[in-house]
């Protein structure tokens, strides 16, 4: 809204998508699994199929949690940028509406962390 500066600002948007060498940033947060203290940031090609996010990218971090290998992916509830959504696993992130700096949250019903503690 306001620019409070003597001579204005230079036009610098430090995290514009062009700065990520063909990738876009995507954040992924696993609800009710606070053993991961925050959502995770990944630089990913927009053309990456959603399936690859699930089977190649997410395990690199979330595998550490014993719940991860028990996930029944057909029951997972997805929220992208605050809106519930059903990913088309064969389509790209972009075609699924996952853009630069989108936040993907997923919930795994029945799997609520270590001993149900939401950790």
């Amino acid at each position: 809204m306001a620019v409070i500066a003597k001579d204005g600002y230079i036009d610098l948007v430090r995290d514009r998508v062009e700065n990520f060498h063909g990738n876009q940033l995507v954040y992924v947060g696993w609800d009710d699994h606070l053993l991961f203290s925050a959502a995770q940031a990944f630089p990913l090609p927009p053309e990456m199929p959603f399936q690859a996010l699930v089977s190649d990218v997410m395990p690199s971090v979330f595998n550490y949690h014993p719940d991860f290998r028990k996930i029944d992916w057909s029951t997972v509830q997805w929220v992208v940028d605050g809106v519930k959504f059903e990913p088309d696993m064969g389509k790209s992130l972009k075609d699924n509406g996952v853009g630069h700096k989108s936040l993907i949250r997923f919930k795994t019903p029945g799997l609520n962390g270590i001993n149900g503690t939401r950790l």
């Binding site: 809204m1 306001a2 620019v3 409070i4 500066a5 600002y9 610098l12 948007v13 430090r14 995290d15 700065n19 990520f20 060498h21 990738n23 940033l25 940031a41 630089p43």
Partner: peptide, 21 residues
């Protein structure tokens, strides 16, 4: 942020800087 977005869009966020190389 919303009061002075032009200032904070310039923020040097370490995680993003790592991914920018």
């Amino acid at each position: 942020f919303e009061y002075e977005p032009e200032k904070y869009v310039q923020a040097w966020l370490p995680v993003h800087q790592i991914y920018q190389g």
